[in-house]
Amino acid sequence: MTRRFDLKKIMMDNLVLVVIFLLVIITAIVEPNFMSEANMTNLMRQFGPLSLVSLGMTFVIIGGFIDLSVAGIISLVAVVTVALIDPLGQVNALLIGVALGAGLGLINSILLLTCGAMTQAEALFITFGMSSVYSALALIITDGATLHMTWLTTPQTIFETIGSGTVGVLSVSFIIFLVCLAILYVFQGETHAGRSISYTGGNKVAAILSGIPVKRSMVIIYTISGFMAAVGSVVLFSRVTTAAPIIGRGFETNAILSVVVGGTSLKGGKGSVLRTVLGVLLVTLLSNCMNLLGVPPYMQVVLRGAVLVLAIWLDNRKEL
């Protein structure tokens, strides 16, 4: 064993960190504005919605399933919440919106449970179908139009705070993220229900035979995913102050991208919310850095796809 080999192993084990480090250094040298306070605030705000959605997605993937319906849930929650601010007041609208997200996740899990779906592929198609239902409902509610929060007559201080408020140097959306991360981290590592999810993803048949409540795990992971998608949706539309019925489009692939890049295995059973944070950080940094470096937008799509393919490939090679 030479020292060089060890270095290589350490780098391979923490590839995401190494890439983030390199990316930050290169961008900071080429474009000094990267380290400016304005860009840091900007990064924090961009980080918000995707990180929240990805945290929820992490549990689904650890549990050995997948959830494509977050795109539909985000759109529907955004539209419903904004539409309800005027008739019901902002607090009620917020509560109903978040509860709606959890409820839609619950519907997904009930569908999967009643038909006995055990594989990722079955979950993929059922949640894809539900996603198109949810997004179409969002389109029906607004008749395809975008809802603007500036048109509302009642006060919307909560959403203004979420969208643009700061506490010290941290933006409010970032604090929401930190709180969710702390709760979910404790939930994953310290509670019986959280650990059951990992066992469920590891090997479902073994989990059932050894008395792990697999069905309860499935309900929990999809409800968390729906709930986090709803929270992400609130943060997202508060920042842009409009609720378009297609606002959630593309979030499902980006969330899966972040989770997988972070190093949570798609085979299930392995992974953690902290890894996902790294994954989201890399994805967000990548687009921020490419913008600053002046990479043309279409080339950015190519590069993001290339990163996804590379990350999955490297993740898989580790297990070979």
Partner: peptide
Amino acid sequence: GMGMLMKG
């Protein structure tokens, strides 16, 4: 992922 790359 390949689909995303090719779209780009």
